[in-house]
């Protein structure tokens, strides 16, 4: 059968399955709305405090375990993470002031400016793992397809960072649970197109926020796999989320230095 003869057949098949494709696809507006909902429900209108346990496994190295507490003030995009354990790291912290991330080392008493892609405590985690990106605001989106991720029906989206976005990854792909709209899997790509990290979010939880008068969602567990150095992996457990207002001076160098003492 010649290609010309195939054309009407293909046209007929396309017409026949068009409603199915339409169901599987999401419109740009629907995607934007979904991403906006995801952004909104992960953010509190007021303050946010939680414990985070970070475990790092690297090839030919001893496993590293950190106990940290992190603070967010979503309204002003402020962020702070303070290391509690092990004792050698206690008092160390990262603080975002405006668009700059600063690291404090109580050993030297010095502050050093770091970038947003800084590996927190030398692990494969970054500040974005504790302080989610603004998906709707900072990314353009493209629908890859409706897929199955294990037992979950998911939307597979490809997001490209807009110029000036604070994401260190120019492209990310997300697998979003259709039922709950929780992000279940995320892949971060380098500019070259190389896959850098795959993160899984197997457990989500929510707490009611008095300030927001709604629930705030957070991943209870994040499993990050380094796709460049395949045997490196990081696990983050988030616990004891507290949405009560924080002291006004929490997001200052002086406060972190005082805590370190």
């Amino acid at each position: 059968m010649s290609p010309r003869a195939l054309a009407p057949v293909l046209a007929m098949l396309t017409a026949l399955f068009a409603p199915v494709f339409a169901l599987a696809q999401m419109s740009a507006a629907e995607m934007a709305a979904m991403l906006q909902r995801m952004d909104d429900r992960q953010r509190n209108m007021g303050d946010y405090k939680a414990l985070a346990y970070i475990e790092q496994r690297e090839k030919n190295k001893n496993d590293v375990f950190f106990e940290t507490v992190f603070y967010r003030r979503d309204k002003s995009e402020q962020f702070l993470i303070l290391f509690l354990k092990p004792r050698t790291e206690a008092g160390k912290g990262y603080l975002r002031i405006e668009k700059n991330l600063w690291m404090y080392d109580p050993g030297t008493g010095k502050w050093e400016r770091r970038t947003e892609r800084e590996r927190i405590g030398g692990t494969n985690s970054r500040s974005q793992d504790f302080d989610p990106l603004y998906l709707a605001r900072d990314f353009t989106h493209e629908y890859v397809g409706a897929e199955k991720l294990g037992n979950f029906e998911v939307h597979h989206l490809r997001l490209k960072a807009k110029p000036g976005a604070k994401s260190p990854d120019p492209v990310i792909e997300m697998w979003i649970d259709k039922a709950t709209e929780n992000n279940l899997k995320q892949q971060d790509f380098a500019l070259s197109g190389r896959l850098m990290r795959t993160s899984y979010y197997p457990k989500w939880d929510k707490v009611f926020s008095e300030t927001k008068k709604a629930e705030v969602y957070y991943p209870k567990e994040i499993r990050i796999f380094d796709e460049v150095e395949k045997e490196n992996r990081t696990t983050i457990l988030i616990d004891t989320v507290d949405l009560r207002p924080l002291e006004p001076n929490v997001f200052t160098k002086a406060w972190l230095e005082a805590k370190s003492r």
């Binding site: 970038t115 947003e116 892609r117 960072a161 994401s167 260190p168 990854d169 120019p170 971060d188 380098a190 500019l191 070259s192 190389r194 850098m196 460049v228």
Partner: peptide, 15 residues
């Protein structure tokens, strides 16, 4: 070998 570093614009890149 894969070389990995952020670009001048601050996004991750590899070669």
């Amino acid at each position: 070998l894969t070389l990995s570093a952020p670009t001048m614009g601050g996004v991750n890149n590899t070669v």
